[in-house]
Design a protein around this nucleic acid. Structure first.
Ligand code: SF4
Ligand code: SF4
Lengths: 145, 145
DNA sequence: CTGGTTTGAGACTTTCGAGTCTCAAAAAAC
DNA sequence: GTTTTTTGAGACTCGAAAGTCTCAAACCAG
C-alpha cells in the first residue's frame, strides 16, 4: 500500500524537521538536511526545486545558502506539499482504478472509498507544518530513521 | 495514491464479475473474462494461478475448463484476496514509511494513519465477494472499464 | 491414439518511480 | 578577478511492478 510517493514523504519529513529543529533562522543547508535525515542529497535537492518553483520554499545559492519556508509554518498545509509532488490526480485515483469513474457511475466499493479519501484529504487540509513540527518538538516523536 | 496493486484490482474486478454474471455455473473461461473486462489474458492467468495455489480458486484444464470459487462467495472475504496478492506486509506500510515504526515510537502522523489503516482493514474483512457481486447485479454498478 | 483447447510455469520485455551523476549558475570569500 | 560553496537543471542508471511470450501439462473429442 503506497499512499504517498517517496518525494512527498521526504519533503514532509525534511520540512517537519526544519520546523522542529531549525526554527526560523534563515536558509537551511540541503546537505545538512540530507545527512541528518539520511535522504539522498541529489534527490532531496530535486524535490526542493519543485517546491521552490511552486512558491512554497525560497532558496538561496552560495555559501550559507539553502532553503527556507516562503511563509510561516502555521500557514503551510500538508496538502499544498502533496499537491505539488503528487500532482492534481492524487485524490482522483481509486481502489479499483476504473477510468472515468465517479459519483454518477460508481463501482461497488465507491461508497466506502469516497469516505476514506475524504478523511485523508481533510487530514491533509487541516494539518500544518507548524503542527507537525510542534508534535516532534514537544513529544519527541521521531522523524528520522 | 496507489493502495492496491494491479494484481489485486484485476482479481477483485474479475471475481466480482464472476459472482455477478456467472452465478455458480461451474468453471469460467479465463479468455472470456479477459475479453469481457479488458484485462491482459496472460496477466490475469498468472493472478488466478496465485489464487488457485492459495486455495481460493479451483481450476480445470482443457475444453470447458477455467476457474471457479473454491467456496461460496458469501464465505470469501476481500481481505483473503488482498492478502494473497499483496503479501503480509500490506497493512504494515505507512504514510512516512520510517523503518521499525510503530506504537511505541511513532511519527507525527501515526495517530491519524493508525485509524485510517484500521478502517481499511475492517472494510476488507467485512466485505465478501457475494456482497460486491450483489451490488453489481442489483444496482447495475459498473465493474468494466 | 491424435489433435485441439485450456490452464500452469517461467523466461523475457516494458514502463516508471526512485536514485545517481555531471555540469551550469549564482553568490560569497579571498 | 579567481576560487569555493551551494542550489538549479537535466541526463543517466537501477529496480520492481506490470505486461508479453513461449512452451509444457492436463484434459476432452473424435
Ligand atoms: S467508482 Fe468510486 S471507488 Fe470505484 S474506482 Fe471509481 S471513484 Fe474509485
Ligand atoms: S509511526 Fe505510525 S504512521 Fe508513522 S510511519 Fe510508523 S506506523 Fe506509520
Amino acid at each position: 500500500m503506497k499512499v504517498l510517493s517517496k518525494g512527498s514523504v521526504y519533503a514532509l519529513r525534511a520540512l517537519t524537521y526544519v520546523v522542529a529543529h531549525k526554527g526560523d533562522i534563515g536558509f537551511v543547508n540541503i546537505g545538512e538536511l540530507s545527512r541528518s535525515l539520511d535522504i539522498s542529497f541529489h534527490f532531496l535537492t530535486k524535490i526542493f526545486q519543485q517546491l521552490t518553483q511552486a512558491g512554497i520554499l525560497e532558496s538561496y545559492r552560495g555559501p550559507n545558502g539553502g532553503i527556507k519556508l516562503a511563509r510561516p509554518p502555521q500557514e503551510i498545509k500538508v496538502i499544498e506539499i502533496v499537491d505539488v509532488l503528487e500532482g492534481p490526480e492524487f485524490f482522483n485515483t481509486c481502489l479499483l482504478g476504473l477510468p472515468g469513474c465517479g459519483e454518477f457511475d460508481p463501482c461497488p466499493v465507491h461508497d466506502f472509498w469516497k469516505d476514506a479519501k475524504a478523511a485523508l484529504r481533510e487530514e491533509f487540509e487541516e494539518t500544518t507544518l507548524a503542527e507537525l513540527g510542534k508534535k516532534v518538538s514537544d513529544e519527541r516523536l521521531r522523524i528520522k530513521p
